[in-house]
């Protein structure tokens, strides 16, 4: 599904990602954890094609095709979805209008017919129930005046509507209380399927109690320094990120060896 090879990327001229190798098979859920500034969001941005992130070396293969240089809208139509850490407020564009335009753009790309207003409405109602989103949010401008939880629900709603092949969740859990987290996770889990992969970027282990990953990677200074199963997240939670960093400091060569180990 996704194969990242030696990915280097910069933001505003500063190198952030310094050689990421990561492979996600269809149906797998991978968690990417790491301290602030380790490059988690830059990885999400590089995958989704945000113009502020510049890929300086390496490849991102999605179903065998290189994504670098592909427009963000084409990536979205091909099945890549980024749930934003900070969903953007867009006053003046109705949420309903936006979601319909989005769904139909993706459908058109797939060679499907556009949904009319009625069909769209019944689809959106069904999906809104999954994320416990109140109806009135459809009639408001995109994310404008939404609470933190409502914004994150809106992200997951979009994901449910677009049915992407690869879901990237960038700190979808941050700022959510436990009830909201559970409801949002419920929405995400509704999408789990043998041919859909997920990359869950998070600072906290808590989310992974609800969305259980197949693999966990730890990012530090733009590299994957440790990979393991879901227990790695628990260990990290217990010992803190300082644990990884002090381990690296005492044995810098270990990081490369471990990163090599998770390839393929």
């Amino acid at each position: 599904m996704l194969e990242i090879k030696n990915l280097h990327a910069s933001t505003a001229g500063t190198p952030i990602l310094k050689g990421i190798d990561l492979s996600v098979a269809p149906g797998e859920i991978h968690a990417v954890m790491g301290p602030n500034g380790s490059g988690k969001s830059t990885l999400a941005n590089a995958l989704s094609g945000r113009p502020t992130t510049e890929v300086t070396a390496g490849e991102i293969l999605f179903e065998g095709r290189d994504l670098t240089g592909m427009e963000p809208e084409t990536r979205a139509c091909e099945g890549i979805f980024l749930a934003f850490q900070y969903p953007v407020e867009i006053p003046g564009v109705g949420n309903n209008y936006f979601l319909k335009a989005s769904v139909n753009a993706v459908r058109e790309h797939r060679g499907e017919t556009a949904l009319d207003a009625m069909d769209f409405l019944s689809l959106v109602r069904e999906k809104m129930k999954l994320v416990h989103m109140p109806d009135e949010l459809m009639n408001r401008p995109i994310n404008a005046g939404f609470s933190g939880g409502e914004k994150k629900r809106n992200e997951v709603l979009q994901m449910l509507l677009l049915e992407p092949k690869l879901c990237i969740l960038d700190e979808t859990d941050s700022g959510l209380d436990i009830d909201a987290l559970r409801e949002v996770a419920e929405g995400v889990n509704a999408l789990r399927s043998p041919d859909r992969s997920m990359l869950i970027i998070t600072h906290y282990q808590r989310l992974l109690d609800y969305i259980v990953p197949d693999k966990v990677h730890v990012l530090s200074d733009g590299r994957i320094v440790r990979s393991g199963d879901k227990d790695l997240a628990l260990e990290l939670e217990e010992k803190g990120y300082g644990w990884i960093e002090s381990e690296l400091a005492s044995n810098p060569a270990a990081s490369d060896a471990r990163a090599e180990g998770v390839r393929g």
Binding site: R50, E73, A76, P87, V93, A101, S102, I142
Partner: peptide, 12 residues
């Protein structure tokens, strides 16, 4: 805002 819309499949 432009990137947000594009990331949902809407052309530039």
């Amino acid at each position: 805002a432009l990137f947000y819309l594009q990331s949902r499949g809407i052309g530039r």
